[in-house]
């Protein structure tokens, strides 16, 4: 997993990237952490325990616990069962949970969310940053 702890006393929003592919999830987390100067709690999860493509609810639960610091957690899925696994996770949460799902492009959304979180933004602002990635042209 890729992670970086924040040096700020104020807890920042945690971010979990989930994909079928561990390489995609961890690679996106690496890029997002670097653009955020490492000042963000982010992990990428994906694949099965034996290294095949797939998603795991248990792995997602562990990742959310790992990045949670009291300011909430954003889950960003890429496709297919990553989305279903993230929705299953949220369905298991009690009302008033501080975990939210973002509907956003994976890499761009991860970078936008991570930079925004590292600046001390709220969970709602981090979700908005991720979802706003859909509207930003790169050319």
């Amino acid at each position: 997993m890729t992670e970086a702890s924040t040096s700020s006393e104020i807890p920042t929003v945690g971010i979990v990237l989930i994909s079928h592919s561990r390489a995609i999830a961890e690679g996106a987390a690496d890029v997002a952490a670097q653009v955020s100067a490492g000042a963000v709690r982010i992990v990428g999860v994906g694949g099965t325990e034996d290294g095949r493509l797939g998603t795991s609810l248990d792995a997602l639960v562990g990742a959310v616990e790992k990045v949670s610091a009291g300011a909430g957690v954003l889950i960003l899925p890429d496709l297919g069962s990553a989305v279903l696994t993230a929705k299953a996770f949220l369905a298991d949460q009690e009302d008033g949970t501080d975990v939210m799902l973002a509907d956003a492009p994976f890499v761009e959304g991860a970078v936008a969310a991570a930079v925004t979180a590292s600046g001390g933004a709220t969970l709602a602002e981090v979700v908005a940053a991720a979802e706003g990635a859909r509207d930003v042209r790169k050319l």
Binding site: V31, Q34, V35, V115, G119, G120
Partner: peptide, 14 residues
């Protein structure tokens, strides 16, 4: 590029 852009956004956030 990405890293200085990230620094700019961090400075403008919060």
């Amino acid at each position: 590029h990405a890293r200085p852009a990230g620094q700019v956004t961090r400075a403008a956030t919060g």
